[in-house]
């Protein structure tokens, strides 16, 4: 499986994402600059964390109009797996690929620590390697991860099982403890915690690796013909 790590000016988790795919997951991966027009050669798209365009105006607001985002929308429509982590999640929200918006953390502080998440939907292409209701530890590092959506959107998220991860002990004020959501179609996931920073016990934990393994597993099931 071949992944693209999209790099915006100001991305800073792109190297971690690349490392997770190449060295820990053992799949192909390439960096893709934000002015690239086509993502046709890739099977999965990863939008890493960081501070694209210095978070000017709002987080993700400017990156969302990068040339590559048209290709990301096309890949989303084609059903390819798309994962946005932290700033990547913020960009997906601004782009309208996921519903809702981010506010400043309730505490107004930048939060950087491992947090416990609950897997509340293990039936997505990003979460099948986890067990339902499993508690996993994944680090967060953000100043604006306070998820918000209106009541109607929240009802739809619940109705369609689009909430994938919730915080056990809400660090940022997010509505309903939401840490990660998926689109209705089930191929675009956004989450504030960083699974790519939790792929090796040596670095404090490997609970994030199963997320990437889930993607590969569902891709293989759909695309690789059994011999």
């Amino acid at each position: 499986m071949k992944f693209a790590v999209i790099v915006f000016p100001g991305s800073n988790c792109d190297v971690d994402m690349y490392h997770a795919i190449k060295d820990e997951l053992g799949e192909q991966v390439e960096y893709v600059w934000h002015d690239t027009e086509s993502l046709d050669e890739f099977d999965g798209i990863l939008l890493p964390g960081g501070f694209s365009y210095g978070d000017y105006l709002r987080t993700g607001a400017i990156a969302r109009f990068s040339k590559v985002m048209q290709a990301v929308v096309k890949a989303a429509e084609a059903g390819k797996p798309i994962l946005g982590v932290c700033n990547g999640f913020q960009i997906l929200l601004e782009a309208g690929l996921l519903p809702g918006a981010m506010r400043r953390n309730e505490s107004l502080s930048f939060i950087c620590k491992p947090v416990d998440l609950k897997v509340v939907n293990n039936q997505t292409m990003f979460s099948t390697a986890y067990t339902q209701e499993e508690t996993i530890s994944i680090p967060v590092a953000h100043g604006e991860g306070n998820y918000y959506c209106d009541e109607e959107t929240l009802a739809a998220l619940k109705e369609n099982n689009q909430i994938v991860f919730t915080y056990q002990d809400n660090p940022n004020g997010s509505l309903e403890d939401i840490a990660g959501i998926i689109n209705e179609k089930g191929n675009v996931l956004g989450m504030m915690p960083h699974p790519e920073r939790a792929v090796d016990e040596l670095l404090g934990g490997a609970d994030g690796l199963k997320l990437f393994q889930s993607i590969v597993r569902s891709w293989r099931e759909a695309n690789v013909v059994k011999a």
Partner: peptide, 8 residues
């Protein structure tokens, strides 16, 4: 389109 995010 850009200056405001009308969701919030």
């Amino acid at each position: 389109k850009l200056l405001a995010n009308t969701v919030i």
